[in-house]
Write a protein that binds this DNA or RNA. Structure first.
Length: 856
DNA sequence: GGGACAAATA
DNA sequence: CCAATCATTTGTCCCA
């Protein structure tokens, strides 16, 4: 078996090196300078990681005077005082060393060198190999067959390894001659005098000839040069003193137990984890958990209340609530908690678990996967004091917003290049909870590299609990009105169906586009307007509209379509979503679905409740305020066009909003010289179309004008709003060049197809490049506004709640006596959330249901 | 179970 | 010559 290797570090020397190697602007958020601590810690950890020492120890200089000062007052007298920005860092360094459970040596009146020398020589005797890590060349004198030096040449990563051969090569001397050399030439940095007139070259020459200082002094006659002879004679004593000063003491009175220097697995890794968090060394945390493999996770089951109470947890924990059952009716069957060193499965009654969570989560930083549902459960149980600090789902979403349905296993695979072990049940939960630490390190690193960390921490993470609260709040639905609507629609639909089949002359399934196509275009021989991509007859609303005058069956089919859509999509399912306990509908807001940063809503989707048609609005009407409350709806007016004005910096567009003009009226005047009902309508289509990258064909289709005319409008628009054209060109160029576009708040969207050879793919990517910064920035603004509004409601201790977000609209439920205050507060918060170069405007409406609302 | 189609919202 | 305004969710049909 090969010999064990002991690493001995010169703490002082390395800390100094780190201090000068790194900028002193490296601080924690409270301003504490930590550059030296960071550099030292990083060096230490990477040493452990790369060299895997068997044993390790770190020595520090004694505070104040040493035995060398007694011998020679001037020792190190020319040293500058320790810089203020470094002084306090020594204590932190020692904290780090202690937290990592590495033995630390510091003995009164002795320097780190002496402790290291003594340890090294002892270790050599005990048959260890030794590596000394230092930034001080003095230590080179200790080199032997079993002792080598790692010398940090410059900075903290430029390291040279000295063994006997390397030393001889560099110095043309044996290592033990180094002290003789210093005796002769002195050492400026330690203020060791040496002999005047003898420097680097001469000292080496003399030692090569005579061997050691004593031999030189005994044979001064044989030294060349009159002056040199004289100096050696006069300063012989000084040289001997110099030698004593330069000689590292190897017989310090130390009690050495090498067993205690064995590098152990950290017993309490959590203390190091906490310290690194305090020092904000997030990039170094990876070294701590580094040795825990995915498969190794073993959990400790906690079945007893007493056992639970004796659990001591660090300030950051990964946690998974083992919830079972449908949304909002879940029961908590257990809790998995992971720290860096242990995973616990707490298996107790739900009531006890809730009490435990309430007490435990306060002041803890929580790492959770898919946190929203768990936070919703906590809020439901009245637990409000918690602090989500990481969710890999959202991190992965920000990094790749267009990627769909990435789950935890996918994230682990993608970012850690690891596969989940083949385990199930609690074991799997333990693995997945434990891995959150690693994921945090890796993903936050990636986020930082992509300028997404702020967005993640300041927008998406805090939004999670807001969304959890929205979902928990739900919105009340009038079951009675819903039933009325059901019968009303059912009657109308069956009547229509009869009429349609009569006109068609046969029974058929109107819901089947295929069967409908056969009836319309084969049987009734109506003109084929359009075919679908698969070659079938298109029966879309647009096609039906064009056939309107051709047959009396057409309007009936259109009406049938719209009524069945309303019934099957809204009226029929809505009932089933009503929570029997709350009488309310609790949607599911997804935060990681859309490519632009918007939210989405499902089960049911409450972001597409009808509003445009009279019939559709009846569905809106069933969403009501509970007794004693009003619904308050606040929506941003033309937020996307305002965002366009801001990011394009187009003067005319900006001015219009700054002066509070009606933008569609203004554009009508710009394009047509006059604003009438007709020209304003066209102008509105142009305004919106531009933000979507509309083509002349698209605009023509929409306005039912010809292509040439549409092109004129678009060209005219660009000539009146030239910076908008510049914006469009700029975004396409940017996307082509860097592969992505960004929102005002740095949210990214990658557009790999922007350089596709496929014309359509490329065109689509170009339109997306135009639209995403607009839609995405608007989404960002709304998210920030939600955080602001929620905070303000809480601060003002209002009993009002946000129920829904519909992209540019918030719906709140407000006690009648708070309406005035809340209407004002919400408007102000939403308008002032961000400060663009154009004002944001919010319209507030109030009503008893979501349909009948009055301007407030 | 999944693709095609259609339609609701912003 | 093609296809032709962003972003979603949901429902039905229909084939496998």
């Amino acid at each position: 078996m090969s010999k064990q290797r002991l690493y001995l570090l010169d703490g002082n020397s390395l800390v100094y090196r780190a201090f000068y190697a790194l900028p002193d602007t490296l601080t924690t958020s409270d301003g504490t300078v930590t550059n030296a601590v960071f550099g030292f810690t990083k060096m230490l950890l990477s040493l452990i990681d790369n060299q895997a020492p068997d044993l390790i120890g770190i020595a520090f200089d004694a505070q104040g005077a040493t035995f060398r000062h007694e011998e020679y007052e001037e020792y190190k007298a020319n040293r500058k005082e320790t810089p203020d920005k470094l002084k306090h860092q020594f204590d932190l360094v020692k904290e780090v060393v202690d937290a990592l459970e590495i033995p630390r040596f510091e003995v009164e009146s002795l320097e780190a060198d002496d402790l290291i020398g003594t340890l090294a020589i002892e270790a050599e005797k005990e048959d260890y190999k030794v590596t000394i890590v230092t930034g001080d060349r003095d230590a080179l004198q200790l080199i032997s067959d079993n002792i080598e030096i790692m010398y940090t040449k410059r900075g903290i990563s430029n390291i040279i390894r000295y063994d006997v051969d390397k030393f001889r090569e560099d110095y043309e001397l044996d290592p033990e001659q180094l002290v003789d050399k210093k005796a002769l030439m002195g050492d400026k940095s330690d203020n060791i005098p040496g002999v005047d007139g003898i420097g680097d070259k001469t000292s080496t020459k003399l030692l090569k000839e005579f061997g050691g200082l004593e031999e030189v002094l005994d044979n001064i006659d044989q030294v060349g040069g009159k002056k040199r002879k004289q100096m050696l004679r006069e300063q012989g004593a000084r040289a001997k003193l110099s030698k004593r000063l330069a000689t590292i003491k190897v017989d310090c009175p130390l009690e050495i137990n090498f067993d205690k220097l064995v590098l152990a697995d950290l017993e309490d890794i959590d203390q190091a984890y906490d310290l690194f968090n305090r020092l904000e060394f997030t990039s170094l945390i990876s070294y701590l958990g580094g040795h825990k493999g995915l498969e190794k996770v073993d959990y400790q089951e906690v079945n007893e209340l007493e056992e639970l109470q004796s659990l001591k947890l660090p300030s950051t924990i990964a946690i998974k609530l083992n919830l079972n059952g449908p949304r909002l009716k879940q029961t908590l069957e257990g809790i998995i908690i992971a720290t860096l060193e242990q995973v616990y499965y707490i298996n107790l009654a739900e009531k006890e678990l809730i009490t435990y969570l309430e007490d435990t989560l306060v002041d803890k930083k929580l790492l959770m996967y898919q946190a929203k549902g768990q936070l919703r459960y906590l809020l439901q149980q009245g637990i409000e004091e918690f602090n989500l600090s990481f969710d890999p789902l959202l991190a992965a979403y920000l990094l790749q917003p267009s990627e769909d349905a990435i789950d935890l296993a996918g994230i682990i695979e993608k970012y850690l290049q690891q596969a989940e072990p083949e385990v199930t049940g609690i074991k799997l939960l333990a693995v997945r909870t434990n891995i959150l630490f690693k994921l945090q390190i890796k993903l936050e690193e990636e986020l930082k590299e992509n300028d997404l960390l702020e967005l993640f921490q300041d927008m998406e993470l805090p939004l999670v609990r807001i969304l959890a609260q929205l979902e928990l709040n739900g919105i009340k639905v009038s079951q009675e009105q819903l039933e009325n609507l059901f019968t009303e629609l059912s009657t109308k639909i069956s009547k229509l169906k009869k009429e349609i089949c009569n006109l068609a002359g046969e029974e058929f399934n109107i819901n089947s586009p295929q069967q409908l196509g056969t009836i319309l275009f084969d049987k009734l021989d109506l003109p084929v307007i359009k075919k679908t991509s698969t070659g079938n007859y298109s029966t879309s609303a647009k096609v039906l509209e064009k056939l309107e005058g051709n047959h009396e069956i057409i309007p009936l089919i259109s009406e049938y379509r719209s009524l069945t859509k309303l019934k099957s999509t809204y009226v029929d399912p809505l009932e089933s979503y009503i929570n029997e306990k709350t009488g309310r509908i609790h949607t599911n807001f997804k935060q990681q679905v859309t490519a632009t940063g918007r939210l989405s809503s499902r089960e049911p989707n409450l972001q597409n409740i009808p509003i445009r048609t009279e019939e559709g609005r009846k569905i809106r009407q069933v969403f009501v305020a509970q007794e004693g409350y009003k619904l308050v709806a606040a929506d941003y007016s033309q937020v996307e066009l305002r965002v366009l004005a801001h990011i394009s910096q187009d003067e005319r567009l900006k001015k219009a909003y700054q002066q509070g003009l009606d933008i569609h009226t203004q554009t009508a005047k710009e394009l047509f010289g006059i604003s009438t009902k007709q020209t304003r309508r066209k102008a509105k289509a142009v305004n919106f179309g531009i933000a979507y990258g509309i083509s002349d064909w698209g605009l023509a289709d929409r306005l039912k004008i010809n292509k040439r005319e549409a092109k004129e409008y678009i060209d005219l628009y660009f000539s009146r709003y030239p910076k908008v054209k510049e914006y469009i060109d700029d975004k396409i160029r940017q996307a082509k060049k860097q592969g992505y576009v960004t929102t005002i708040f740095d949210r990214k969207r990658y557009l790999p197809e922007i350089n596709s050879r496929n014309y359509h793919k490329r065109q689509f990517a170009e339109r997306t490049a135009i639209n995403t910064p607009i839609q995405g920035s608007a989404a960002d603004i709304m998210k920030l506004a939600m955080l602001d509004v929620a905070k303000a409601l809480e601060k003002e201790e209002l009993a009002s709640d946000i129920l829904l977000q519909v992209h540019d609209e918030l719906v709140l439920e407000v006690p009648k006596d708070e309406v005035k205050k809340v209407a004002k507060l919400v408007k102000k918060r939403m308008e002032d959330t961000v400060n663009l170069d154009v004002p944001l405007e919010v319209d507030v409406k109030v009503g008893d249901n979501w349909n009948e609302m009055e301007e407030y």
